[in-house]
Amino acid sequence: MTDAATVRDVAALARLTISDQDIENVTVEFNQTLELFDALGTADTTDVSPMINPLDTAQRLRPDNIETLVDREGLMQNAPASEEDYFLVPRVLD
């Protein structure tokens, strides 16, 4: 069983907050999901290598050439707050 404090710790790592009102329900569902995963323990995986890519192939690389794929202005227009070419965030250094 994973307790509410651990669930809150994981949420903090994922930069999420869980309200006091929701924590009980979230913890119950979290544990239900982990119970679903218990079945994995029944599989004998001795000497089985993990499968990361379903085709088991190396990723293809392309020549390291400089290309302009997207326009900077178009990207900056989606910024919630910006000034000139910079993204604005709350002050980080005092």
Binding site: F37, L40, G41, A43, T45, V48, S49, P50, M51, P54
Partner: peptide, 14 residues
């Protein structure tokens, strides 16, 4: 316990 194990079981399934 979870992620690595699941990747191994994924290979068994494949």
């Amino acid at each position: 316990q979870y992620f690595m194990k699941a990747q191994q079981v994924r290979r068994l399934i494949a």
